[in-house]
């Protein structure tokens, strides 16, 4: 094999190898995965619409640090979520905990959808029932005077 062909082959092998993918998998330890899973459930209090895993805010970064430290100390994911709940209340959870008034958030949309559907059904049903099933009686014939006026108007 000529030198240039060998070089091309090696270059091709390097470029087509899935090494970055492998490196990514190897970089993430079991602890990292646990941190990620917990961090995804906690709201970034500074950015509000993002979880602390996705947020780049310093507070979110520090919260991720707290999650990591507590996991290292042997705390369970539930203990860690409970800690954040005790500091920030339900607001810290990306999904509101299912208790008390929070149930309205979970079931409210379905109740509204059901209520709206029932209301629509009742209204449409009322319209259908109100529509006469037999055709309306034919209109009375035109008198001579009206017929002549119509003909004049059509001709003009």
């Amino acid at each position: 094999m000529r030198m240039s062909s060998r070089f091309t082959l090696i270059l091709l092998l390097i470029l087509t190898s899935p090494w970055p993918l492998l490196a990514e998998v190897q970089d993430e330890t079991a602890l990292d995965i646990q941190v990620r899973e917990i961090a995804k459930t906690l709201r970034c209090t500074v950015c509000q619409t993002e979880n602390i895993w996705e947020s780049g805010a310093p507070l979110a970064q520090q919260m991720r640090g707290v999650v990591r430290e507590r996991l290292k100390l042997g705390h369970s994911p539930e203990d860690i979520k409970e800690y954040f709940l005790s500091r920030y209340g339900d607001y810290i959870m990306m999904e509101p905990p299912k208790h008390g008034v929070n149930w309205f958030i979970w079931v409210g949309p379905f109740i509204l959808l059901l209520g709206g559907g029932l209301l629509l059904y009742k209204e449409v049903n009322g319209w259908v029932r109100g529509t006469p099933s037999t055709p309306a009686a034919p209109p009375p014939p035109l008198d001579e005077q009206a017929r002549q006026r119509l003909e004049r108007e059509l001709e003009s």
Partner: peptide, 13 residues
């Protein structure tokens, strides 16, 4: 130093 005091007090900003 590491934001721990703020988190302990549930600080938003």
């Amino acid at each position: 130093l590491h934001g721990q005091i703020a988190i302990d007090y549930g600080v938003y900003g």
